[in-house]
Protein backbone atom coordinates (compact mmCIF):
# COMPACT_ATOMS: atom_id res chain seq x y z
CA UNK A 1 0.00 0.00 0.00
CA UNK A 2 1.62 3.24 -1.11
CA UNK A 3 1.35 6.54 0.68
CA UNK A 4 -1.01 7.95 -1.90
CA UNK A 5 -3.39 5.03 -1.81
CA UNK A 6 -3.12 5.11 1.99
CA UNK A 7 -4.31 8.72 1.97
CA UNK A 8 -7.00 8.02 -0.62
CA UNK A 9 -8.27 5.09 1.41
CA UNK A 10 -8.34 7.08 4.64
CA UNK A 11 -10.07 9.97 2.94
CA UNK A 12 -12.63 7.58 1.53
CA UNK A 13 -13.39 6.18 4.99
CA UNK A 14 -13.76 9.67 6.43
CA UNK A 15 -16.03 10.85 3.63
CA UNK A 16 -18.12 7.78 4.19
CA UNK A 17 -18.18 8.46 7.91
CA UNK A 18 -19.32 12.00 7.22
CA UNK A 19 -22.04 10.67 4.94
CA UNK A 20 -23.22 8.25 7.63
CA UNK A 21 -23.13 10.93 10.32
CA UNK A 22 -25.23 13.30 8.20
CA UNK A 23 -27.67 10.51 7.39
CA UNK A 24 -27.97 9.61 11.07
CA UNK A 25 -28.51 13.22 11.89
CA UNK A 26 -31.34 13.29 9.38
CA UNK A 27 -32.77 9.92 10.32
CA UNK A 28 -32.69 9.95 14.12
CA UNK A 29 -35.60 12.38 14.59
CA UNK A 30 -37.62 10.33 12.12
CA UNK A 31 -36.87 6.99 13.72
CA UNK A 32 -37.80 7.97 17.24
CA UNK A 33 -41.08 6.90 18.80
CA UNK A 34 -43.70 9.60 19.29
CA UNK A 35 -43.75 12.61 17.01
CA UNK A 36 -40.57 14.55 17.64
CA UNK A 37 -40.78 16.28 14.28
CA UNK A 38 -44.27 17.48 15.02
CA UNK A 39 -43.05 18.86 18.33
CA UNK A 40 -40.11 20.41 16.59
CA UNK A 41 -42.13 22.14 13.92
CA UNK A 42 -44.81 23.25 16.30
CA UNK A 43 -42.19 25.10 18.26
CA UNK A 44 -41.58 27.26 15.23
CA UNK A 45 -45.25 27.94 14.67
CA UNK A 46 -45.32 30.13 17.75
CA UNK A 47 -42.45 32.26 16.54
CA UNK A 48 -42.92 35.37 14.45
CA UNK A 49 -41.86 35.28 10.78
CA UNK A 50 -42.33 31.52 10.83
CA UNK A 51 -43.37 31.46 7.20
CA UNK A 52 -39.98 32.78 6.25
CA UNK A 53 -38.22 30.14 8.30
CA UNK A 54 -40.28 27.42 6.76
CA UNK A 55 -39.00 28.32 3.35
CA UNK A 56 -35.38 27.53 4.01
CA UNK A 57 -34.10 24.30 2.50
CA UNK A 58 -33.36 23.07 5.94
CA UNK A 59 -36.90 23.45 7.11
CA UNK A 60 -38.17 21.90 3.93
CA UNK A 61 -36.14 18.84 4.69
CA UNK A 62 -38.33 18.29 7.68
CA UNK A 63 -41.40 17.12 6.00
CA UNK A 64 -44.69 18.65 5.07
CA UNK A 65 -45.85 15.29 3.78
CA UNK A 66 -43.30 15.14 1.01
CA UNK A 67 -41.60 11.87 0.07
CA UNK A 68 -38.72 10.93 2.38
CA UNK A 69 -36.13 10.95 -0.37
CA UNK A 70 -37.01 14.53 -1.25
CA UNK A 71 -36.63 15.51 2.37
CA UNK A 72 -33.29 13.73 2.45
CA UNK A 73 -32.03 15.46 -0.67
CA UNK A 74 -33.13 18.82 0.69
CA UNK A 75 -31.22 18.06 3.85
CA UNK A 76 -28.03 17.60 1.84
CA UNK A 77 -28.77 20.63 -0.30
CA UNK A 78 -29.17 22.72 2.83
CA UNK A 79 -25.91 21.36 4.16
CA UNK A 80 -24.01 22.30 1.01
CA UNK A 81 -25.38 25.79 1.30
CA UNK A 82 -24.02 25.94 4.83
CA UNK A 83 -27.57 26.00 6.14
CA UNK A 84 -28.06 24.18 9.43
CA UNK A 85 -31.39 25.75 10.26
CA UNK A 86 -32.42 28.37 12.73
CA UNK A 87 -32.03 28.28 16.48
CA UNK A 88 -35.11 28.49 18.64
CA UNK A 89 -33.27 29.36 21.78
CA UNK A 90 -31.34 32.17 20.16
CA UNK A 91 -33.91 33.03 17.53
CA UNK A 92 -33.48 34.35 14.90
CA UNK A 93 -29.79 33.48 14.79
CA UNK A 94 -28.72 30.83 12.34
CA UNK A 95 -27.40 27.60 13.80
CA UNK A 96 -24.29 27.66 11.61
CA UNK A 97 -23.33 31.08 12.96
CA UNK A 98 -23.85 30.11 16.59
CA UNK A 99 -21.96 26.87 16.22
CA UNK A 100 -19.04 28.44 14.40
CA UNK A 101 -18.76 31.07 17.12
CA UNK A 102 -18.51 28.34 19.76
CA UNK A 103 -16.02 26.15 17.87
CA UNK A 104 -12.86 28.18 18.62
CA UNK A 105 -13.44 27.75 22.34
CA UNK A 106 -13.41 23.99 21.90
CA UNK A 107 -10.31 24.04 19.79
CA UNK A 108 -8.44 26.21 22.23
CA UNK A 109 -9.29 23.75 25.00
CA UNK A 110 -9.04 20.39 23.29
CA UNK A 111 -5.98 20.80 21.10
CA UNK A 112 -3.58 21.99 23.81
CA UNK A 113 -5.03 19.53 26.34
CA UNK A 114 -4.54 16.57 23.99
CA UNK A 115 -1.07 17.62 22.90
CA UNK A 116 0.26 18.53 26.34
CA UNK A 117 -1.27 15.48 28.05
CA UNK A 118 0.17 13.28 25.33
CA UNK A 119 3.66 14.64 25.82
CA UNK A 120 3.65 14.65 29.62
CA UNK A 121 1.73 11.38 29.87
CA UNK A 122 4.11 9.55 27.56
CA UNK A 123 7.04 10.90 29.47
CA UNK A 124 5.62 9.91 32.85
CA UNK A 125 4.68 6.48 31.51
CA UNK A 126 8.22 5.94 30.29
CA UNK A 127 9.57 7.00 33.68
CA UNK A 128 7.22 4.55 35.41
CA UNK A 129 8.31 1.76 33.10
CA UNK A 130 11.96 2.25 33.99
CA UNK A 131 11.66 2.26 37.75
CA UNK A 132 9.77 -0.32 39.70
CA UNK A 133 9.48 1.97 42.71
CA UNK A 134 8.03 4.83 40.71
CA UNK A 135 5.85 2.34 38.90
CA UNK A 136 4.21 1.20 42.12
CA UNK A 137 3.81 4.78 43.22
CA UNK A 138 2.53 6.34 40.00
CA UNK A 139 0.34 3.66 38.46
CA UNK A 140 -2.49 3.82 41.02
CA UNK A 141 -2.55 7.57 40.49
CA UNK A 142 -2.71 7.16 36.72
CA UNK A 143 -5.53 4.65 37.05
CA UNK A 144 -7.41 7.01 39.30
CA UNK A 145 -6.97 9.92 36.88
CA UNK A 146 -8.07 7.98 33.84
CA UNK A 147 -11.09 6.62 35.76
CA UNK A 148 -12.38 10.03 36.74
CA UNK A 149 -15.25 11.45 34.72
CA UNK A 150 -13.95 14.61 33.07
CA UNK A 151 -16.60 16.82 34.58
CA UNK A 152 -16.01 15.42 38.05
CA UNK A 153 -12.35 16.35 37.74
CA UNK A 154 -13.62 19.78 36.72
CA UNK A 155 -15.81 19.92 39.82
CA UNK A 156 -12.90 18.96 42.07
CA UNK A 157 -10.63 21.58 40.51
CA UNK A 158 -13.37 24.19 40.68
CA UNK A 159 -13.89 23.48 44.35
CA UNK A 160 -10.18 23.50 45.15
CA UNK A 161 -9.12 26.46 43.07
CA UNK A 162 -12.13 28.74 43.05
CA UNK A 163 -13.62 28.11 46.49
CA UNK A 164 -11.00 26.72 48.87
CA UNK A 165 -8.18 28.68 47.26
CA UNK A 166 -9.88 31.32 45.14
CA UNK A 167 -7.13 31.64 42.54
CA UNK A 168 -9.15 31.30 39.37
CA UNK A 169 -12.53 32.49 38.11
CA UNK A 170 -15.20 29.83 38.12
CA UNK A 171 -17.13 30.48 34.94
CA UNK A 172 -17.10 31.92 31.45
CA UNK A 173 -14.32 32.40 28.94
CA UNK A 174 -13.52 35.92 30.12
CA UNK A 175 -14.79 38.39 32.69
CA UNK A 176 -18.20 39.89 31.96
CA UNK A 177 -16.91 43.43 31.56
CA UNK A 178 -14.19 42.49 29.08
CA UNK A 179 -14.33 43.02 25.37
CA UNK A 180 -12.34 40.45 23.35
CA UNK A 181 -9.19 42.06 22.00
CA UNK A 182 -5.49 41.33 21.78
CA UNK A 183 -4.67 43.50 24.75
CA UNK A 184 -2.51 42.04 27.49
CA UNK A 185 -5.25 42.51 30.05
CA UNK A 186 -7.70 40.52 28.00
CA UNK A 187 -5.23 37.75 27.22
CA UNK A 188 -4.37 37.33 30.89
CA UNK A 189 -8.04 37.29 31.79
CA UNK A 190 -8.74 34.76 29.05
CA UNK A 191 -5.93 32.46 30.18
CA UNK A 192 -7.17 32.63 33.77
CA UNK A 193 -10.60 31.44 32.67
CA UNK A 194 -9.10 28.85 30.37
CA UNK A 195 -6.76 27.26 32.91
CA UNK A 196 -9.20 25.18 34.94
CA UNK A 197 -11.16 23.57 32.08
CA UNK A 198 -7.83 22.93 30.37
CA UNK A 199 -6.38 21.33 33.50
CA UNK A 200 -9.45 19.10 33.95
CA UNK A 201 -9.03 17.67 30.47
CA UNK A 202 -5.28 17.47 30.85
CA UNK A 203 -5.29 15.53 34.12
CA UNK A 204 -7.79 12.89 33.04
CA UNK A 205 -6.13 12.29 29.68
CA UNK A 206 -2.68 12.23 31.22
CA UNK A 207 -3.49 9.06 33.15
CA UNK A 208 -4.50 7.18 30.03
CA UNK A 209 -1.41 8.13 28.05
CA UNK A 210 0.90 7.27 30.93
CA UNK A 211 -0.66 3.83 31.42
CA UNK A 212 -0.50 3.15 27.70
CA UNK A 213 3.12 4.21 27.41
CA UNK A 214 4.18 2.25 30.47
CA UNK A 215 2.60 -0.95 29.18
CA UNK A 216 3.96 -0.48 25.67
CA UNK A 217 7.50 0.04 26.90
CA UNK A 218 7.37 -3.00 29.17
CA UNK A 219 6.08 -4.93 26.17
CA UNK A 220 8.82 -3.61 23.91
CA UNK A 221 11.52 -4.35 26.48
CA UNK A 222 10.61 -8.02 26.17
CA UNK A 223 10.82 -7.92 22.39
CA UNK A 224 13.44 -9.75 20.40
CA UNK A 225 15.30 -6.64 19.33
CA UNK A 226 15.63 -5.58 22.97
CA UNK A 227 17.04 -8.98 23.89
CA UNK A 228 19.43 -8.84 20.96
CA UNK A 229 20.68 -5.40 21.94
CA UNK A 230 21.12 -6.51 25.52
CA UNK A 231 22.99 -9.62 24.43
CA UNK A 232 25.34 -7.35 22.49
CA UNK A 233 26.01 -5.35 25.62
CA UNK A 234 23.84 -2.31 24.92
CA UNK A 235 23.13 -0.27 28.03
CA UNK A 236 19.74 0.04 29.60
CA UNK A 237 19.35 3.64 28.50
CA UNK A 238 19.97 2.79 24.88
CA UNK A 239 17.53 -0.12 24.90
CA UNK A 240 14.94 2.08 26.59
CA UNK A 241 15.33 4.76 23.97
CA UNK A 242 14.66 2.18 21.27
CA UNK A 243 11.66 0.81 23.14
CA UNK A 244 10.34 4.33 23.63
CA UNK A 245 10.62 5.09 19.94
CA UNK A 246 8.69 1.97 19.01
CA UNK A 247 6.08 2.58 21.68
CA UNK A 248 5.42 6.04 20.23
CA UNK A 249 3.79 4.64 17.11
CA UNK A 250 0.83 2.95 18.81
CA UNK A 251 0.49 6.04 20.97
CA UNK A 252 0.06 8.16 17.84
CA UNK A 253 -2.66 5.81 16.64
CA UNK A 254 -4.15 6.08 20.12
CA UNK A 255 -4.32 9.82 19.58
CA UNK A 256 -6.94 9.27 16.89
CA UNK A 257 -9.11 7.19 19.20
CA UNK A 258 -8.64 9.63 22.05
CA UNK A 259 -9.91 12.64 20.10
CA UNK A 260 -13.50 11.43 20.29
CA UNK A 261 -13.23 10.90 24.04
CA UNK A 262 -11.54 14.25 24.48
CA UNK A 263 -14.46 15.91 22.73
CA UNK A 264 -16.88 14.13 25.03
CA UNK A 265 -14.78 15.28 27.97
CA UNK A 266 -14.77 18.85 26.72
CA UNK A 267 -18.55 18.84 26.31
CA UNK A 268 -19.15 18.04 29.97
CA UNK A 269 -16.21 20.06 31.32
CA UNK A 270 -17.42 23.20 29.58
CA UNK A 271 -20.71 22.87 31.40
CA UNK A 272 -19.04 22.91 34.81
CA UNK A 273 -17.20 26.12 33.97
CA UNK A 274 -19.93 27.63 31.72
CA UNK A 275 -17.22 27.78 29.08
CA UNK A 276 -18.96 28.87 25.86
CA UNK A 277 -17.87 26.02 23.58
CA UNK A 278 -19.96 23.43 21.78
CA UNK A 279 -20.59 21.46 24.98
CA UNK A 280 -22.08 24.41 26.76
CA UNK A 281 -24.08 25.12 23.62
CA UNK A 282 -25.36 21.57 23.57
CA UNK A 283 -26.55 21.91 27.14
CA UNK A 284 -28.46 25.06 26.21
CA UNK A 285 -29.92 23.26 23.24
CA UNK A 286 -30.97 20.29 25.38
CA UNK A 287 -32.52 22.44 28.07
CA UNK A 288 -34.43 24.52 25.52
CA UNK A 289 -35.30 21.61 23.26
CA UNK A 290 -33.51 23.46 20.48
CA UNK A 291 -33.04 20.42 18.26
CA UNK A 292 -31.54 22.19 15.26
CA UNK A 293 -28.88 23.74 17.42
CA UNK A 294 -28.10 20.38 18.98
CA UNK A 295 -27.84 18.63 15.65
CA UNK A 296 -25.75 21.40 14.20
CA UNK A 297 -23.36 21.10 17.10
CA UNK A 298 -23.25 17.33 16.56
CA UNK A 299 -22.29 17.74 12.90
CA UNK A 300 -19.58 20.25 13.67
CA UNK A 301 -18.19 17.95 16.36
CA UNK A 302 -18.12 15.07 13.90
CA UNK A 303 -16.33 17.16 11.29
CA UNK A 304 -13.85 18.35 13.88
CA UNK A 305 -13.08 14.76 14.91
CA UNK A 306 -12.78 13.63 11.29
CA UNK A 307 -10.31 16.38 10.46
CA UNK A 308 -8.30 15.57 13.57
CA UNK A 309 -8.22 11.89 12.62
CA UNK A 310 -7.06 12.74 9.15
CA UNK A 311 -4.25 14.91 10.45
CA UNK A 312 -3.16 12.14 12.80
CA UNK A 313 -3.15 9.67 9.91
CA UNK A 314 -0.90 11.98 7.93
CA UNK A 315 1.48 12.36 10.86
CA UNK A 316 1.53 8.62 11.31
CA UNK A 317 2.30 8.07 7.66
CA UNK A 318 5.17 10.52 7.88
CA UNK A 319 6.64 8.81 10.93
CA UNK A 320 6.14 5.08 10.54
CA UNK A 321 8.82 3.67 8.23
CA UNK A 322 6.52 0.78 7.37
CA UNK A 323 4.20 3.14 5.53
CA UNK A 324 7.03 5.27 4.23
CA UNK A 325 8.96 2.32 2.86
CA UNK A 326 5.87 1.04 1.09
CA UNK A 327 5.67 4.44 -0.55
CA UNK A 328 9.29 4.33 -1.62
CA UNK A 329 8.71 0.93 -3.12
CA UNK A 330 5.95 2.27 -5.28
CA UNK A 331 7.66 5.42 -6.51
Amino acid sequence: MGLLSYIVRKTGIYLLTFFVAVTLNWAIPRLMPGDPIGVLLSRFATLPESSEVVYSYFMRSFGFDRPLWEQYLDFWRALFNGDLGVSIYMYPQKVEDIVLQALPYDLVLIVPAVVVSWIIGNWLGAVAATSRRLDNLLMPLFYFLTSSPYFWMAIVLAWLLTVVFPLFPSSGAYSPGMVPSLSTAFIIDFIKHWTLPFLSLLLVMLGGWAIGMRNLIIYELESNYSRYMEALGAGRRLILSYAFRNAMLPQITGLALQIGLAVAGAITTEIVFSYPGLGFLMLQAIQNQDYFLMQGAFLVIVVMVLVANFVIDLIYAAIDPRIRSAYAGEA
Binding site: I13, Y14, L24, V263, A264, I267, I286, M294, V302, V305
Partner: peptide, 10 residues
Protein backbone atom coordinates in the same frame (compact mmCIF):
# COMPACT_ATOMS: atom_id res chain seq x y z
CA UNK B 1 -14.75 7.66 14.57
CA UNK B 2 -18.13 9.24 15.35
CA UNK B 3 -17.84 10.47 18.95
CA UNK B 4 -20.11 8.22 20.97
CA UNK B 5 -21.24 10.75 23.55
CA UNK B 6 -22.23 13.28 20.89
CA UNK B 7 -24.26 10.64 19.07
CA UNK B 8 -25.84 9.54 22.35
CA UNK B 9 -26.87 13.11 23.07
CA UNK B 10 -28.69 13.43 19.77
Amino acid sequence: VIPTLALLIV
